[in-house]
Design a binder for these strands. Structure first.
Length: 522
RNA sequence: GCUCUGGUAGUGUAGUCCGGCCAAUCAUAUUGCCCUCUCACGGCAAUGACCUGGGUUCGAAUCCCAGCCGGAGCACCA
């Protein structure tokens, strides 16, 4: 009895059990916990990336989780670029679109896209209001001096300035009358708060370096993340903030501002850092950036880089990443994501569509070896997909063939060239023995992949572990660029290009190849 | 140093709030078997965990205390 039949039968004998079964199946699909106090149709969340480069794998967690909740609660997904530091975390002008593209690849589309650097006037207005409420003061103490006072629980001498002076000095900050480091605007919190991290934090500071965006290049007085983000979350109606544990204290800091304004703070969830196994390269935007600049990596989509673009180029579906990311749950402890989990999800997605081809690898420790085939048909005809015979067969010319050395049988032994037939290794040649499949089924002859020596394509297979060269069967020329195929007994790859241009960095095509593929996973 | 926060199989996760149905769930991983002209897909099975020590209790992964180990913040970064 198959699944639908079983269900039908159950519906006849115990209709109430069916409801129970369906209810269970539904909750099981929710890998992520329910959001606290979430009203369907009234959930607003934001991803707040810093646009300082394309995303690495760790960044995928935010859109994956927000997007998944958005779908569950029919909520809103805001993408807000927190680009308020033109200097130390200087925005990269290409990164805004690069990040939106990465989100799109993951299968989500933000309902709104905002840039903090467009909203500076709004932050100024709220700063003025906060000053009038007595909630902020201008402070000209050097950071180190303030830090000492703060750690001792002692106030800055500027703390009790009257609002008029504060207002004047803040306007002077806005007007660019101070140089970097000369003046800040601090939020008046509780200078004796038991957590030193919350004491009178900086809301605005002066940055001399102009913002790279032309629209924002004239501003010198910039808000700090906690101020900007706190104001924006309220103004854009964010109901649920999801962020990393590095921002654990942010909510506590921002609450002081919310209290001054009489606002209600959103629900907050924190999660730990994600580490990903399998990569040698550290998962950090700046590290990857400098490796690319040094030519160690061929770009953001180099298969050795732990970036979204890299796995995308390898033919891994965004959905596979989203599934793995949501499976990580929402725990506050640091987690390791096993790439094998992404691979397992991806195999599910691509196996059915991936046509099969042969690639004979030529590696130092397992070189490709050529042999003449004596006798037998002119070509082999393995199917394009074992589960879809309707897709037809490939044609692989025999004659002189190439196999991987480790697949070469000892002299006098037999091997089955898949889709062709059984041959015996005799005096450096393959003598055709026949096509009786019982030799495989009952006599234990191994089945191996092979390609013709002459008609095959010079192939470069790029992967996490580095580049591998080899020869692909001619029929792969029928595969479209950008499709995922499976090299039997090797793994899934994405067809990247035919007759590729040479690359400049370390690794990549030399220009002599007929085909470049990117290796996804076994 | 001060302040947060966390510790369930290799990895991730459920269970912890409201103690018993938990000799602990699911996924992935690994191994073996079946299927198979792929080491894919599919099917079956095995492996493998409650940080430690006390306490409360008839009973503790769950409550309490202490300890150990980890992560984060204490920036004019995000």
């Amino acid at each position: 009895m198959d699944e639908p039949a079983r269900r039908e039968r159950l519906a006849e004998i115990a209709p109430d059990l069916i409801d129970e079964l369906e209810a269970e199946a539904e909750t099981d699909e929710h890998v992520l916990p329910d959001l606290p106090d979430a009203e369907p149709g009234a959930v607003v969340m934001r991803a707040a990336p810093n646009p300082n480069g394309p995303w690495h794998m760790g960044h995928a967690r935010m859109p994956a989780v927000i997007g998944t909740y958005k779908e569950r609660y029919d909520g809103e997904f805001i993408c807000r670029f927190d680009d308020t530091d033109p200097e130390t975390k200087r925005p990269d002008l290409d990164a805004y679109d690069a990040i939106l593209e990465d989100i799109d690849y993951l299968g989500f589309e933000p309902d709104r896209v905002l840039k903090a650097s467009d909203r500076v006037e709004t932050y100024y207005e709220h700063a003025r209001e906060l000053i009038d409420l007595g909630g902020a003061y201008t402070c000209d103490l050097p950071g180190e001096e303030f830090s000492e006072l703060k750690n001792a629980g002692k106030p800055s001498p500027n703390r009790d300035k009257d609002p008029e002076t504060v207002r004047e000095e803040f306007e002077a900050m806005v007007d660019g009358e101070y140089a970097a480091g000369e003046m800040t605007l601090r939020v008046k919190t509780d200078i004796e708060h038991k957590n030193p991290a919350l004491r009178d934090w900086v809301a605005f500071r002066i940055v001399d370096t102009p913002h790279p965006r032309e629209e924002a290049a004239d501003y010198r007085c910039w808000p700090m993340l906690d101020f900007q983000s706190g104001i924006d979350d309220h103004l854009t109606g964010v109901t649920h903030i999801i962020r990393g544990i590095d921002l654990q204290d942010s909510a506590k800091r921002q609450r002081f501002v919310y209290d001054y304004f009489g606002w209600e703070y959103p629900e907050v969830l924190h999660w730990g850092h994600v580490q990903i196994d399998e990569y040698d390269v550290k998962m950090s935007t700046s590290t990857i950036k400098s490796l690319i600049e040094d030519g160690e990596l061929t770009g953001w989509d180099d298969p050795r880089a732990p970036t979204i673009r890299s796995v995308r180029r390898r033919g891994i579906q965004g959905e596979a990443i989203v599934e793995s990311m949501t499976e990580l749950g929402m725990s506050t402890s640091d987690v390791d994501l096993a790439m094998s989990s992404v691979y397992a999800n991806n195999r599910d997605l691509v196996d059915d569509g991936a046509n099969r081809y042969f690639l004979v690898r030529d590696r130092e420790d397992d070189p490709a070896v050529e042999r003449d085939v004596v006798g037998g048909p002119e070509a082999g005809h393995p199917p394009l997909h074992p589960s879809h015979e309707d897709r037809g067969d490939r044609t692989i010319p025999a004659g002189r063939v190439v196999v991987e050395e480790s697949d070469l049988p000892a002299n006098g032994d037999r091997v089955w060239l898949k889709g062709f037939g059984c041959v015996r290794h005799v005096r450096d040649a393959f003598e055709y023995v026949g096509d009786d499949i019982d030799m495989v089924r009952e006599e234990g002859v191994d089945v191996v992949h092979w390609v013709p020596a002459d008609e095959s394509l010079e192939t470069l297979m790029r992967g996490v572990e580095g580049d591998v060269r080899g020869r692909a069967e001619p029929a792969i020329a029928d595969a479209d660029v950008d499709t995922v195929v499976q090299f039997e007994r090797v793994g899934f790859v994405r067809v990247d290009a035919f007759d590729p241009e040479p690359a400049d960095g370390a690794g990549g095509p030399t220009g002599e190849e007929d085909l470049v593929v990117y290796y996804a996973h076994p």
